[in-house]
Design a binder for these strands. Sequence first.
DNA 1: ATCGGCCTTGCCACAATGGGAAGGTCAAGC
DNA 2: GCTTGACCTTCCCATTGTGGCAAGGCCGAT
Lengths: 141, 141
Amino acid sequence: MMNIGQAAAASGVSAKMIRHYEGLGLIRPGARSAAGYRLYAERDLHALRFIRQARVLGFSLEQIRTLLSLWQDQERSSADVKRLAASHMAELDERIASLQAMRAALAALVGSCAGDQRPDCPILAGLAEPGRCPEHVPGPD
Amino acid sequence: MMNIGQAAAASGVSAKMIRHYEGLGLIRPGARSAAGYRLYAERDLHALRFIRQARVLGFSLEQIRTLLSLWQDQERSSADVKRLAASHMAELDERIASLQAMRAALAALVGSCAGDQRPDCPILAGLAEPGRCPEHVPGPD
DNA sequence: ATCGGCCTTGCCACAATGGGAAGGTCAAGC
DNA sequence: GCTTGACCTTCCCATTGTGGCAAGGCCGAT
C-alpha cells in the first residue's frame, strides 16, 4: 500500500489527475489510511497505467471509461473494443487531415512571403482575402 | 451600419464570438445604436474575416492579436509576419506528428485485434502493457 | 517541539466556443 | 395602439484535461 505520491511516480499519472480520475469515477475511491490518505496497491497501478497509456493514444476520458469497463468485463467481445478503437482512429484521421490542410494553406502563404524588412506580405493579404491563393498570381489571362 | 447578426452572417464569425473578440480587445468596441445595439461597418467586416481566416489556419487568438497589429501597422516588416507564421507552422507540424504517432500505435493494435465475439483483445492488452507491441509476437527466439 | 515534505479539500485558470436565461428593442401586421 | 416574433443586450455555465495555489492536517526525523 502506497501513498498517492508514490502511486503517481510509479504510474506516470500525476497525483492531481489520480484524484481527478477518482472524482470522475474512472478508478474506485479505494482505501484510506487512518489519517485519510489515499492508499494504492499494485492492482490500482495497473488501472492507472492503463489510463495513462490510453491517454497517450489520445483516447478521451469518456472513451477510457468505456475501455476500462470492457477491460474489466470478462464477457466482453473484442469487436466492441475494436469498434471503439477504430472510431477513435477515424477521429484521429480527421484531426490529422484538418491540421494538414491548415499546414498546407499556411505553407503556401509562408512560401510566398519574402520575409524581409518591407511591409508587403502575402500572408497578411491571404488572411485578409481568404479566396485568393498567393502563388496563383493572376497573369494577363 | 449593420447589427451584429448581419455582421456575423457576412463575416462567418458567430455573434457570440464577435462579442467575445471585442471583450478580448481583438476588435474595437465600436459604435452602438441609441438602444445599445452594436453597429458594424464594412471596415469591421474586414477585420472579422481576417480573424476568421486566421482561425481557419489554426492561429490562436493571442497570435491573431499580434497578426492584427501587424496588419494594421504600415511600418511592419514582412519578416515579423513570416516568423510568426513559420512558428505556427512548426507547431502544427508537432501536433501532426504527435497525432500520427498515436494513430500508428493505435493502428498496430487495431490491426492485430480479431474483432469477433471472443474476449481476447490485443488492444486492451496493449493498453495494459504499454511496452509490448502486439504484432511483435514473441516467437521461440 | 519543530521543521520539511507529503497529504487533504476546494477554488481558479487556461482556450475557444456554445447554450441558455432574463430582459430590452424593433418592425410588421392587425 | 398593441401584440408577436425576431433580434439584441448582459451574465453565467459547460465543455476537456491539466496545472497552480492556499489553508490546513499528518508524518518522520532531528
